[in-house]
Design a protein around this nucleic acid. Structure first.
Lengths: 335, 335
DNA sequence: TTGTAGGCGTTATCAA
DNA sequence: TTGATAACGCCTACAA
């Protein structure tokens, strides 16, 4: 077990005062070059690392950011959070931060957790994955001046706070374009009930691409249902049994798409299907799907946070604003 | 923004010294009942929370445990880590700990990260997911007296350190039994190359169940391949084209099973298939699979750690040892 | 440019 | 049973 090496140890070793060591670390420009050199060498030689707890006590900053790990719902979309978390952890480490996990049963519970985390761990910031209209969490955080960024736009007001998002409309538009290019004309959409920002956005992309191609995004081809494989299968089945069944289906999630695929197979039909999120399941069953740049999104969240917390970037003149990333379409056998 | 309430605030409010407040918190038995009451009331009224950084500086303990978030390889098995992490975060919170994430490119990088995390954040313990024969990481940690627990047995020596694991052999044996009960006799196994503890274990379960039923786990029915859908498909295809093809296949992973399922479909055969891990993909495609009790495993890891770290359980006389949990078979259409 | 002094909130030691 | 004192490692004044 190595001896504990503190700032004093370094100071002794470098023949300077503790303060000079601290200056080398925190205000390098204020210390003479050769002294700086000497101190840096000592730090290197001794393997000194600043003790975060001590620093935190003085500065009130923990270099810790928190993110919620949600229980995997139908499981399929769990991998999205997974990849996002990995990217965030990487980006955070690079920026000198670490990621702490927390769970919460609901919004109220989540706010209680914020309170706890903030007052006892002094977390520097939160990363929220997704927001709703009138999100109580973001209001709570903003009211207390806590830094946070959301992965997902605040749908009611884009200026409300820092966010990073992926352009879902663009994703479904890509998928729709791809189908149109393949000769499809009757292209249906299976998405979530109106009211969820994300769902509305994805539906809008389909409708836009249809209109841009001179096609009508008819209500008869536009279905709404809660997320899930069974739901997708049921709704797709309805569509396929309709008057003028679609020859292709754009779905708002891989879960819905997977259900749709099953309905198509059951009906013995040949209908192209696209999903959203490019989950492992999509890869496994050959489902064409819209892929979100999750590592980039995570890095974006961290950039925004670092910018707000450290003020470096702001000082450098390029204050970073919200960012909307473009997804890509991964084409497989299903479409 | 609420005023900062420290132990001194509480002391004033309760008309006692700071130390007494500390005692109420850390050695309740040493303080008189009515004083304790008074202090507790003050804590409640003021909403006091102990500052972890300050406590950490004194005690050297951070109440933080670290776990690595791995990049999802073929993606399918990512959900396993996901569920484990969720369970761990929950269990940790209950035990008064928090989970910190880190990534690492390889064993060497991982050890460098240990060093960093330990010396600058003073982490209390690590949770490793899986170990190999002669794992350098566990040796490094053990040599430095760092607490850790592995989710996965140390295959060369069960006594080496704390661990929690799921009985993989039991899982594949269940699957095999299930197939035997359904009338199958020629049951093949598709697993990983010999040498990986986990893979060998799962293979052993199949072989044992076969023998127990008076059947021969013939080499002709036993295949080894790296993990992956493509690999599973290829190997299963070979088996199906063999002299006396199996009527059922037990696979060491859902990835392999999924590939096998595709090979079966391509061959137009009717062959039962079982997988391992009960991933979302298995649920999606109706694959019978062995399900690991991940939340329990995570809770077990935390229990072991808390026991070692806090010594409470040890003091109470029931020192907790390694634990081997039983998986369950989730039966779906594929078998 | 460098050094000295003080304090962040907590707990351990020891005296009252 | 309670309270005063010191110390954990660092950083921010301020003085030299």
């Amino acid at each position: 077990m190595a001896e504990k090496v503190t700032i004093s140890t370094v100071a002794q070793h470098a023949q300077v005062s503790r303060q000079t060591v601290s200056n080398v670390l925190n205000s390098p420009d204020v210390v003479r070059e050769d002294t700086r050199r000497r101190v840096l060498d000592a730090i290197e030689a001794l393997g000194y690392r600043t003790n975060r707890a001590a620093r935190q006590m003085r500065t009130g900053r923990s270099q810790l950011i928190a993110v919620r790990i949600e229980p995997t719902r139908d499981g399929i979309n769990g991998s999205v959070l997974d990849r996002f978390l990995h990217g965030l952890t990487d980006a955070a480490a690079t920026a000198g931060y670490r990621v702490m996990l927390y769970t919460a049963a609901g919004p109220a519970d989540e706010i209680a957790t914020y309170d706890d985390l903030l007052s006892s761990y002094e977390l520097d910031a939160f990363v929220l994955t997704g927001t709703d209209h009138g999100d109580v969490r973001t209001e709570w955080l903003a009211a207390r001046g806590v830094q946070f960024v959301t992965f997902g736009r605040p749908w009611d007001n884009p200026e409300r706070h820092l966010w990073v998002d992926v352009d879902g409309a663009s994703g479904t538009a890509h998928a729709t374009d791809h189908l149109i290019a393949a000769g499809h004309r009757r292209i249906g959409f299976i998405g979530w009930p109106a009211g969820s920002g994300v769902g509305d956005d994805r539906r809008a992309g389909w409708a836009r691409a249809m209109r841009d191609a001179g096609l009508e995004p008819a209500a008869a081809l536009d279905r709404q249902t809660p997320d899930g494989i069974a739901q997708g299968e049921s709704v797709a089945g309805d569509l396929l049994r309709g008057d003028a069944p679609p020859t292709a289906l754009v779905c708002a999630s891989d879960s819905l798409a997977l259900g749709a695929l099953q309905a198509v197979r059951a009906a013995g039909a040949t209908v192209a299907v696209t999903g959203f999120d490019d989950t492992p399941v999509a890869r496994a069953v050959g489902l064409t799907s819209v892929s979100q740049p999750l590592a980039e999104a995570a890095a974006g969240c961290m950039d925004l946070l670092a910018s707000a917390l450290d003020g470096d970037h702001a000082a450098l003149g390029h204050r970073i604003g919200p960012m909307l990333l473009q997804p890509t379409l991964v084409v497989r056998q299903s479409a």
